[in-house]
Amino acid sequence: RVIAMPSVRKYAREKGVDIRLVQGTGKNGRVLKEDIDAWLA
């Protein structure tokens, strides 16, 4: 299970990103909004 705040999950869904593919850089591997942006870049 991916650790991410609900707002980040929603952001990823809106961008069409599968959050399971994104490498989290936050505490304990948490996926941050910046990680979604970096994955899209």
Rank of each mutant, 00 (worst) to 15 (best):
R1L: 10
R1T: 15
R1W: 03
R1P: 14
R1K: 14
R1M: 10
R1S: 11
R1G: 11
V2I: 14
V2P: 10
V2N: 08
V2L: 08
V2D: 07
V2S: 07
V2A: 08
V2K: 09
V2Q: 09
I3Y: 04
I3G: 06
I3R: 12
I3W: 03
I3E: 08
I3T: 09
I3L: 07
A4R: 04
A4W: 02
A4M: 04
A4H: 06
A4K: 04
A4D: 04
A4P: 04
A4T: 07
A4V: 07
A4Q: 05
M5D: 09
M5A: 14
M5S: 10
M5Q: 11
M5F: 14
M5E: 13
M5I: 09
P6D: 10
P6M: 14
P6F: 06
P6H: 14
P6W: 08
P6A: 14
P6T: 14
P6N: 13
P6I: 13
P6C: 11
S7A: 10
S7H: 10
S7L: 10
S7Y: 14
S7K: 13
S7F: 11
S7I: 08
S7E: 12
V8K: 01
V8Y: 02
V8A: 05
V8M: 04
V8I: 09
V8E: 06
V8T: 07
R9I: 10
R9N: 05
R9Q: 08
R9V: 09
R9K: 13
R9L: 13
K10R: 15
K10T: 06
K10M: 09
K10L: 11
K10V: 08
K10Q: 10
K10Y: 12
K10W: 12
K10F: 09
K10S: 07
K10H: 08
Y11R: 03
Y11S: 02
Y11E: 03
Y11W: 04
Y11V: 03
Y11M: 04
Y11K: 03
Y11F: 04
Y11A: 03
Y11T: 03
Y11G: 01
A12K: 00
A12M: 01
A12V: 01
A12T: 01
A12L: 02
A12N: 00
A12W: 02
R13Y: 14
R13F: 11
R13I: 12
R13G: 08
R13K: 10
R13T: 14
R13E: 06
R13D: 07
R13W: 15
E14Q: 12
E14Y: 13
E14S: 12
E14R: 13
E14D: 13
E14L: 15
E14T: 11
E14N: 11
E14V: 11
E14P: 00
E14A: 15
K15S: 09
K15N: 12
K15A: 08
K15L: 13
K15H: 14
K15W: 10
K15Q: 12
K15G: 03
K15M: 13
G16H: 10
G16C: 07
G16R: 08
G16N: 10
G16P: 00
G16E: 07
G16M: 11
G16I: 04
V17R: 01
V17L: 06
V17Y: 01
V17N: 00
V17D: 00
V17K: 00
V17A: 04
V17G: 01
V17T: 03
V17S: 01
V17F: 02
V17M: 04
D18P: 11
D18N: 13
D18Q: 07
D18K: 06
D18Y: 06
D18F: 05
D18H: 05
D18S: 06
D18R: 05
D18W: 05
I19M: 06
I19E: 02
I19G: 01
I19R: 01
I19K: 00
I19T: 03
I19P: 03
I19S: 02
I19Q: 01
I19N: 00
I19L: 10
R20A: 11
R20Y: 10
R20G: 08
R20K: 14
R20V: 08
R20H: 13
L21P: 02
L21I: 12
L21F: 14
L21K: 13
L21C: 08
L21T: 09
L21V: 15
L21A: 11
L21Y: 14
V22A: 03
V22F: 03
V22L: 09
V22S: 01
V22P: 03
V22G: 01
V22N: 01
V22Q: 01
V22E: 00
V22I: 11
Q23S: 13
Q23Y: 15
Q23N: 13
Q23L: 15
Q23T: 13
G24A: 08
G24I: 02
G24K: 03
G24F: 02
G24H: 04
G24S: 06
G24Y: 03
G24R: 04
T25N: 07
T25F: 04
T25W: 03
T25S: 11
T25Q: 05
T25K: 06
T25E: 03
G26W: 02
G26I: 02
G26R: 03
G26L: 03
K27D: 09
K27L: 14
K27T: 13
K27W: 13
K27S: 11
K27R: 14
K27Y: 15
K27H: 09
K27G: 09
K27I: 10
N28A: 13
N28F: 15
N28G: 11
N28P: 02
N28I: 05
N28K: 11
N28V: 05
N28Y: 14
N28S: 10
N28T: 06
G29T: 04
G29W: 06
G29H: 09
G29E: 05
G29D: 06
G29S: 07
G29V: 02
G29A: 07
R30A: 13
R30T: 10
R30H: 11
R30L: 11
R30P: 02
R30D: 06
R30K: 10
R30F: 09
R30N: 08
R30Y: 12
R30G: 08
V31Y: 02
V31G: 00
V31R: 03
V31N: 00
V31A: 03
V31I: 12
V31W: 01
L32S: 09
L32R: 13
L32D: 05
L32A: 05
L32Q: 09
L32C: 07
L32T: 12
L32E: 10
L32K: 10
K33F: 10
K33D: 04
K33M: 12
E34N: 12
E34Q: 15
E34R: 15
E34K: 15
E34P: 08
E34I: 15
E34F: 14
E34D: 15
E34H: 15
E34G: 13
D35V: 01
D35W: 00
D35S: 02
D35L: 01
D35I: 00
D35R: 00
D35K: 00
D35Q: 01
D35P: 00
D35N: 07
D35A: 01
D35M: 01
I36Q: 00
I36A: 00
I36V: 12
I36T: 00
I36H: 00
I36W: 00
I36L: 04
I36K: 00
I36M: 01
D37W: 05
D37N: 10
D37F: 04
D37K: 06
D37L: 06
A38V: 11
A38Q: 12
A38T: 15
A38M: 13
A38Y: 12
A38P: 01
A38D: 12
W39K: 05
W39I: 06
W39L: 08
W39V: 07
W39N: 04
W39F: 13
W39D: 02
W39P: 01
L40A: 08
L40D: 04
L40I: 15
L40R: 07
L40Y: 07
L40P: 04
L40E: 05
L40T: 07
L40W: 07
L40M: 11
L40H: 06
A41V: 15
A41E: 13
A41K: 11
A41H: 12
A41D: 12
A41N: 13
A41W: 15
A41M: 15
